[in-house]
Amino acid sequence: SSCPGKSSWPHLVGVGGSVAKAIIERQNPNVKAVILEEGTPVTKDFRCNRVRIWVNKRGLVVSPPRIG
């Protein structure tokens, strides 16, 4: 992607959502990480300053967080 800084975090799958949020925002200060339960409807727009963290009912990351 053409967004500045780190853009994906595949190693965070299985980690707690709040831990993942802290790591992502520390590694790329340009983004705001948002924790969402899988299945939550979201907009389809692409934004360089957003990372969606998809978690299951136990709050664990279920897919690699990435910019968008």
Score class of each variant (00 low, 15 high):
47 R>D: 15
15 V>W: 08
14 G>N: 04
27 Q>R: 05
8 S>A: 15
9 W>H: 00
21 K>L: 04
6 K>Q: 15
57 K>I: 00
18 S>G: 12
20 A>R: 02
32 K>G: 04
30 N>S: 12
59 G>N: 03
41 P>V: 13
27 Q>N: 13
24 I>E: 03
44 K>E: 14
47 R>I: 09
27 Q>H: 09
34 V>K: 08
48 C>N: 13
42 V>L: 06
42 V>C: 08
20 A>M: 04
34 V>E: 14
45 D>I: 06
47 R>A: 15
44 K>H: 11
43 T>H: 09
26 R>V: 07
24 I>C: 03
51 V>C: 07
1 S>D: 12
21 K>W: 00
40 T>Q: 10
59 G>R: 05
42 V>G: 04
11 H>C: 13
68 G>Q: 05
43 T>G: 11
11 H>L: 09
22 A>E: 14
19 V>H: 07
14 G>F: 00
51 V>M: 04
40 T>K: 08
8 S>L: 12
10 P>F: 05
36 L>I: 13
24 I>L: 04
38 E>T: 08
65 P>F: 03
46 F>Y: 13
62 V>M: 09
41 P>K: 13
66 R>N: 07
61 V>E: 00
55 V>R: 00
21 K>N: 04
14 G>P: 01
13 V>A: 02
12 L>P: 02
10 P>L: 03
49 N>Q: 06
61 V>D: 01
12 L>M: 08
20 A>C: 04
28 N>R: 06
55 V>N: 03
12 L>N: 01
38 E>P: 06
32 K>F: 07
60 L>F: 11
13 V>W: 02
55 V>W: 03
53 I>D: 05
51 V>L: 03
64 P>T: 10
15 V>E: 07
20 A>Q: 04
63 S>W: 07
67 I>W: 05
13 V>D: 01
48 C>V: 13
19 V>G: 03
41 P>N: 09
27 Q>K: 08
2 S>R: 11
16 G>F: 10
33 A>R: 02
47 R>F: 10
59 G>I: 02
53 I>N: 02
59 G>K: 01
17 G>M: 01
11 H>P: 05
23 I>P: 00
34 V>R: 06
53 I>S: 01
41 P>A: 11
64 P>H: 00
52 R>Y: 08
56 N>Q: 01
57 K>G: 06
9 W>I: 02
5 G>S: 14
63 S>A: 11
53 I>W: 02
5 G>M: 15
2 S>E: 11
13 V>R: 01
8 S>G: 08
28 N>K: 05
33 A>P: 04
2 S>V: 12
22 A>I: 10
21 K>F: 02
10 P>T: 08
59 G>D: 01
47 R>V: 11
13 V>H: 04
19 V>T: 13
62 V>C: 10
22 A>L: 12
1 S>F: 13
22 A>F: 09
49 N>T: 10
41 P>Q: 13
32 K>V: 11
5 G>A: 15
26 R>Y: 08
5 G>N: 15
15 V>Q: 14
53 I>R: 00
39 G>V: 01
54 W>R: 04
55 V>T: 07
18 S>Y: 14
13 V>T: 04
37 E>V: 11
18 S>F: 11
32 K>E: 12
25 E>C: 02
19 V>A: 11
2 S>C: 14
6 K>G: 14
7 S>M: 13
66 R>P: 06
1 S>I: 14
48 C>L: 09
16 G>H: 13
67 I>L: 12
57 K>Q: 11
9 W>C: 02
60 L>C: 08
67 I>Y: 07
2 S>W: 11
43 T>K: 12
13 V>I: 09
40 T>I: 07
1 S>N: 14
11 H>S: 13
35 I>L: 07
50 R>S: 13
2 S>Q: 13
58 R>C: 10
24 I>Q: 00
61 V>C: 09
5 G>L: 14
4 P>K: 06
57 K>Y: 06
30 N>I: 07
50 R>K: 13
66 R>V: 13
53 I>E: 02
66 R>F: 08
66 R>Q: 11
25 E>N: 00
63 S>I: 09
47 R>C: 13
11 H>V: 05
34 V>W: 05
5 G>D: 14
37 E>P: 09
2 S>I: 15
32 K>A: 05
6 K>M: 15
63 S>G: 06
47 R>Y: 14
22 A>R: 13
10 P>I: 05
11 H>K: 10
47 R>M: 13
36 L>W: 03
52 R>D: 08
66 R>A: 12
22 A>M: 13
21 K>E: 00
54 W>C: 06
36 L>E: 03
54 W>N: 04
65 P>T: 03
51 V>Q: 04
40 T>E: 07
61 V>W: 02
23 I>W: 08
15 V>A: 09
57 K>S: 14
17 G>K: 02
67 I>A: 12
29 P>G: 06
51 V>H: 02
9 W>M: 06
17 G>Q: 02
4 P>R: 11
49 N>W: 03
68 G>E: 10
62 V>A: 07
43 T>D: 12
30 N>E: 13
36 L>Q: 07
38 E>H: 09
4 P>M: 12
40 T>L: 06
66 R>G: 07
59 G>F: 01
19 V>W: 13
4 P>Y: 07
44 K>V: 07
43 T>V: 11
34 V>Y: 07
1 S>Y: 10
27 Q>G: 08
5 G>Q: 15
32 K>D: 07
61 V>F: 01
29 P>Y: 00
17 G>F: 02
27 Q>S: 11
44 K>I: 07
38 E>D: 07
48 C>H: 11
29 P>W: 02
30 N>M: 14
41 P>L: 09
3 C>I: 15
17 G>W: 08
28 N>H: 05
39 G>F: 04
29 P>M: 05
59 G>C: 06
25 E>T: 03
67 I>E: 06
26 R>L: 07
56 N>I: 00
31 V>P: 04
33 A>I: 01
45 D>K: 06
54 W>F: 09
20 A>W: 00
6 K>V: 15
20 A>I: 00
1 S>L: 07
17 G>D: 01
45 D>H: 09
16 G>V: 13
49 N>L: 03
30 N>P: 03
54 W>E: 07
38 E>A: 08
46 F>D: 10
12 L>V: 06
10 P>R: 05
47 R>H: 15
50 R>A: 13
64 P>N: 03
6 K>S: 14
38 E>L: 08
24 I>N: 00
26 R>H: 06
31 V>W: 06
62 V>G: 01
16 G>D: 14
59 G>P: 00
18 S>D: 13
1 S>E: 15
18 S>V: 13
49 N>S: 10
14 G>A: 02
30 N>K: 14
61 V>M: 00
23 I>A: 06
66 R>L: 11
67 I>F: 06
14 G>C: 03
29 P>H: 07
44 K>A: 11
64 P>I: 08
28 N>W: 05
51 V>N: 01
55 V>A: 01
41 P>G: 07
20 A>T: 02
33 A>Y: 04
25 E>R: 03
16 G>N: 10
46 F>W: 13
36 L>K: 03
58 R>A: 13
43 T>W: 07
56 N>T: 02
14 G>K: 02
19 V>K: 11
22 A>S: 13
3 C>H: 15
25 E>S: 03
66 R>I: 12
3 C>W: 08
46 F>E: 14
53 I>L: 05
